[in-house]
């Protein structure tokens, strides 16, 4: 695999560690970390900060019988199995958290055409953010768009370039309101990305704008 050169920033890692991101963003972050040992280590640091905030934080007294109730709860529960995330399948395109949402690997996605050869599949998450898979034919462009909120785009297969940079498997692009870009998939291999937005994208051209409510882009 190529070395990952575009990583999560502190703001996203801290919010993921704190558990305050919308579900759609959590999915992109968890999928990137599955591919990126560097961000996994940084996440460990942000979780350690959470541990110390908890350790040093306030306390609230428990009910008098709380410990007994908890022990009763424990003996009533079924013993927990080893529920670690499904063992990694290094040959798969999608890491485990994404496979859970899709119900399988890349071949299990129900794609819908959105024009220009581009296909997408919206994944079910809470409404605070929308997350979708995009399938862009090698050499094709994603419609020119800006952003009202934050958009995260994680490459899972192939690569794309925009005016600024190149993004390959594992790379994440974090775009905010200032970014107006036209990502183009590289020749050679179709590009599959996982993209999440916390506000609808804003297309420059008239027709995509009209189509927006129907596509839920």
């Amino acid at each position: 695999m190529d070395k990952i050169t575009h990583h999560l920033d502190d703001r996203l890692l801290m919010a993921y560690a704190a558990g305050t991101l919308p579900e759609g963003f959590n999915l992109v972050v968890a999928t990137h970390i599955s591919l990126c040992d560097e961000c996994r280590a940084r996440l460990g640091e942000f979780e350690a900060v959470g541990g110390q905030v908890l350790e040093r934080g306030d306390t609230v007294a428990l009910a008098d019988t709380s410990l007994e109730q908890t022990l009763a709860r424990i003996s009533g529960d079924a013993p927990a199995g080893d529920d670690r995330n499904t063992m990694p399948q290094r040959s798969s395109v999608f890491p485990a958290p994404l496979r859970d949402y899709v119900g399988g690997d890349a071949d299990a996605v129900h794609w819908r055409a959105v024009g220009g050869g581009v296909r997408q599949a919206i994944l079910p998450t809470s409404n605070a953010a929308t997350v979708r898979l995009l399938h862009i034919p090698a050499g094709a462009a994603v419609p020119d768009h800006g952003h009202r909120g934050t958009e995260l785009t994680l490459v899972l297969q192939g690569a794309f370039r925009d005016e600024e940079d190149r993004f390959a498997r594992g790379d994440i692009e974090i775009a905010d309101e200032e970014v107006q870009h036209t990502p183009v998939a590289e020749a050679g291999e179709d590009c599959i990305c996982l993209a999440a937005t916390d506000a609808p994208l804003r297309f420059r051209a008239l027709i995509p704008r009209l189509a927006q409510p129907f596509l839920r882009i």
Partner: peptide, 23 residues
């Protein structure tokens, strides 16, 4: 303990799934 409490909060208060990185 913090990560377990955090996950419980997401589940109970925000009623969302919490995607976790692959082990």
């Amino acid at each position: 303990v913090f990560t377990i409490a955090r996950n419980r909060r997401i589940d109970a208060l925000r009623r969302q799934r919490r995607p976790e990185p692959e082990d």
